[in-house]
Structures are given as structure tokens and as C-alpha cells.
């Protein structure tokens, strides 16, 4: 089953075409990594997919349902009440975490399930405790974000997203704000999610990591998908731009 389907997504900012024609399908349980130079439109793609930005043209389809449908080259979005439903389908992990500083770790994870999804407090707490255990944060339950390292904050933000039980989780450079040691603890958590068959799209500059856990890698440049394929295919690509790009990130 396709969790996400994007057809001919287009997005411009003040006449600058950032996404030119992006089509992309993600099946249940698939892990897709997006790589590419800075400014190529990777974040914009995730922001359009999660509806933080409105795309100009193309379809956006979750679970076979249209969030936006292309009509005559323009994206027409579903009505507001219906759009709300789509927020159940995806989660997004930000580069700089964006935890709520005035909420404890536990509250960060339980507040949206309780006040948005209206599940019982008891169930939300059980979910949170399971996630905290899984992500190795049980002892940080009552801490506040400022008391945590960057890696711990990022793991809490992953737990916060997972607590809403999304069908697909997007990551926008989840480790670029972290030093190498903290990076590896976050990557380990994402790898475990991949093993549990969580559907994910990950924008990353960690080439070895992308190679190891992705079912598919997408190379983006100048607002288009230049090439996509299995890690083996991408890393063996003859395309000089890809070889050049990957070469820069190999340490």
C-alpha cells in the first residue's frame, strides 16, 4: 500500500522555482533517504509534503486520499475540516528539535495525544513511557528540554512525533545540529525504527547511514529528482554530479 504519493509537485518562492516537478511514491514500511546539495529544495519538499507550505501545482496523496489535487496545473487543497485528518498521517522531526521548552519531556510527548487526539491521559502516559524506554530516555521523563543534550532533545522530539502514531515520519537533517557522538545516538534510534518497519523519509548528509538503512535513496538537485535507486545503485552511479556529491561527504 502507498502511504504517500506525490505527483508533479511544483513550488516557487517569489518567482524562484524551488521544486520543479517532483513525483515520489512511498510504500508502507519503506525507508527513503533524500540527499543532495544545500539549496536543492529538500526542506521545501518536506515542508510541502507536511503542509507547512502550500505547493503551487501537483497532487499530494496520503493513504489513497487527496490532500491536494492538481486541477489545470494548480493544486487545490481539500476543505479545512478534512485537511485536519491528514495531520494524523504524518510526523516531522526538525533539524533543531523544536521541543516546547515550558513542557517537561513527558508533557512534550503526551500533550498532543491528549489535547489533539483526545486519547485518555492514562493511555498517553503508557505510550510515552513505552517510547521513552525504547529511546533510552526513561530517566529524563520529568526533565525540561534545556536540561538535555542535543541528542537527547532530538530523541524526545522523535518520541513526541511517534506518540501520535503517524503512518509516515519525515526527518529534515535530524543530526546536522549535533556533534558526532550525539549524532550516532540519534542515528541508532532511527535505525531501530527502520528495523521495526516504520515508514520514513529522511533528508540527511550522513552517507554511510543512508546507505545502510535506506531501501531507496533519492538524489535531488536544482529542484528535481536527478536519480533514485537502491543504495547500491546510487553509490555506484556513473552520474558525475552524484559521484562528486557523495565524494564530498565521505570522510
Amino acid at each position: 500500500m502507498n502511504i504517500l504519493e506525490i505527483n508533479h509537485m511544483k513550488k516557487a518562492f517569489h518567482g524562484l522555482e524551488v521544486l520543479k516537478d517532483i513525483s515520489l511514491t512511498v510504500k508502507e514500511g519503506e525507508v527513503v533517504s533524500i540527499i543532495g546539495p544545500s539549496g536543492s529544495g529538500k526542506s521545501t519538499l518536506l515542508r510541502c509534503a507536511t503542509m507547512l507550505e502550500k505547493m503551487d501545482g501537483g497532487d499530494l496523496i496520503y493513504m489513497g486520499e487527496y490532500a491536494a489535487k492538481d486541477e489545470g496545473g494548480k493544486s487545490v487543497y481539500a476543505e479545512k475540516p478534512e485537511l485536519k485528518k491528514f495531520h494524523h498521517y504524518f510526523g516531522l522531526v526538525f533539524q533543531n528539535f523544536q521541543l516546547f521548552p515550558h513542557y517537561s519531556v513527558l508533557k512534550n510527548i503526551t500533550d498532543a495525544p491528549v489535547s489533539v487526539d483526545k486519547i485518555s491521559k492514562k493511555e498517553a502516559y503508557e505510550r510515552a513511557d513505552r517510547l521513552l524506554k525504547q529511546l533510552g530516555l526513561s530517566d529524563k521523563r520529568d526533565a525540561y528540554p534545556y536540561q538535555l543534550s542535543g541528542g537527547q532533545q532530538q530523541r524526545v522530539s522523535i518520541a513526541r512525533a511517534l506518540a501520535l502514531q503517524p503512518k509516515i515520519l519525515f526527518f529534515d537533517e535530524p543530526t546536522s545540529a549535533l556533534d558526532p557522538i550525539l549524532t550516532s545516538e540519534v542515528l541508532k534510534v532511527i535505525k531501530e525504527l527502520a528495523e521495526q518497519k516504520m515508514t520514513m523519509i529522511i533528508v540527511t548528509h550522513e552517507m554511510e547511514f543512508a546507505k545502510e538503512l535506506s531501501d531507496r535513496i533519492i538524489f535531488m538537485e536544482e529542484g528535481i529528482i536527478q536519480e533514485q535507486g537502491t543504495p547500491e545503485e546510487i553509490f555506484a552511479s556513473e552520474n558525475p554530479r552524484i559521484r562528486d556529491f557523495i565524494g564530498k561527504f565521505k570522510s
Binding site: N96, Q98, D117
Partner: peptide, 21 residues
């Protein structure tokens, strides 16, 4: 920071909830 609004939006908070909470 705008990121606080965006994080709340992704989590499904309404605009009023986002502002108040």
C-alpha cells in the same frame, strides 16, 4: 521562533490551542 508554531501545527494543534498552550 516560527518553529514553535510549525511544530505545533504538525502535531495537529489548532491555532487557538497553539496560541494558548
Amino acid at each position: 521562533p516560527i518553529g514553535q508554531y510549525e511544530a505545533a501545527k504538525i502535531l495537529g494543534y489548532s491555532r487557538t490551542q497553539t496560541f494558548i498552550k
